[in-house]
Amino acid sequence: MEIDTETVLKIARLSRIKINEGESADIQKDLNRIVEFVKKLGEIDIDEIDEFNFGKTNIEDMRKDSVTIYDNTDDILKNTKNKNQDFFTVPKIVE
């Protein structure tokens, strides 16, 4: 199996998802099943092939890099109980 227990825990840590011991074995089994499925891509010779893209974005279609005033802070803060004045509160991050 390509993905061992240690790798499961590593990618869970990178993904910022807490995995408990009970879940770990099932997740490992599912991830290995998916990896086995996508390994089919290894059958193709891709040396001369470019990576896919939708083409260039037209610079003139992009928004101007200009200052806009966004003043609905109150609406945004309505979506959390964890606030203090105009700020979100989180656990202490500086000792």
Binding site: I11, S15, I17, I27, L31, I34
Partner: peptide, 19 residues
């Protein structure tokens, strides 16, 4: 993230992070 995401979503985040 562990409590908020369902099984399939977690699975896809994990496999996406892996690749």
């Amino acid at each position: 993230r562990s409590e908020g995401f369902g099984t399939e979503v977690k699975r896809r985040i994990l496999i996406g992070t892996y690749v």
